[in-house]
């Protein structure tokens, strides 16, 4: 099943003095269970594409369907709820609410989804354990390492049971061992739980771990290759 279908995506930023054509006709389909890296040089349009796929921004042209729903022209308020119910987000940094503990951060997203207290507690603990954060559940973000913080963010993204998880350069601020560790966990979730991941990266070691690598250049897809060497 296709979780993401984007057809003929153009994005032009017009607020700038000279209009910037960040995306110039991108067709990208992602099916369930993929582990896809979006790569390309700086300014090639990776973040722009992820924002559009994630319903954070709207394309200037083209259409975008997520889980079969056309979100191209969705209203802002509908999009917020759509994101809450369908998409998990992991950003480059400062993913978490600083005044909440790891567990509260994970539970918070389920609170927004109006899940019961028992479910929130139970699932938050389960996910933190699965992501190797047992014993750190009552720590606040600033008491956690960058890698641990990103794993809490992944737990938070998983907690909402999304159709896929979007991660814009999730490892950009991590050292190499934390990067490897985070990738291990993402790959494990992908293999065992069939969670679909779409992430952007500059890091060759991260690219090597992807099953599919989509390369952007100047706002168009330059190559799209599947690779088979997944290791856990």
């Amino acid at each position: 099943m296709n979780v993401i279908e984007s057809i003929g995506i153009h994005k032009t930023y017009t607020e700038t003095a000279v209009p910037v054509h960040a995306l110039r006709g991108v067709d990208l389909t992602v099916t369930e269970g993929e582990f896809t890296a979006i790569v390309g040089p700086s300014g090639s349009g990776k973040s722009t594409l992820l924002n559009i796929i994630g319903g954070l921004d709207q394309p200037s042209e083209g259409s975008i369907r997520v889980g079969g729903t056309d979100i191209t022209h969705m209203k802002d308020s509908e999009l917020i709820d759509f994101r809450l119910q369908n998409i998990g987000f992991v950003f480059q940094s400062y993913n978490l609410i600083p005044v909440l503990t790891a567990k509260e951060n994970v539970a918070f997203i389920m609170l927004l989804q109006k899940k019961s207290k028992e479910e929130r507690e139970e699932r938050a603990m389960h996910l933190l354990k699965a992501l190797g954060l047992e014993g750190r559940e009552n720590n606040r973000p600033k008491e956690l390492s960058g890698g641990q913080q990103q794993r809490v963010a992944v737990a938070r993204a998983l907690a909402s049971k999304p159709k896929f998880i979007l991660a814009d350069e999730p490892t950009a601020n991590l050292d190499s061992s934390s990067t490897a560790n985070l990738l291990d966990i993402m790959a494990k979730m992908n293999q065992e739980e069939k969670i679909t991941f779409v992430f952007s990266t500059h890091d060759q070691r991260v690219i090597d771990r992807a099953k599919r690598v989509v390369t952007l250049e100047d706002g168009v897809i330059k190559s799209d290759v599947s690779q088979e060497k997944i290791s856990i």
Binding site: S77, D81, R83, Q85, F89, I97, I109
Partner: peptide
């Protein structure tokens, strides 16, 4: 940044 993150992950403006 934090408020942007909250709205991105699904916190409504009303909340």
């Amino acid at each position: 940044h934090e408020l942007g993150m909250l709205m991105a992950v699904g916190m409504t403006r009303r909340r």
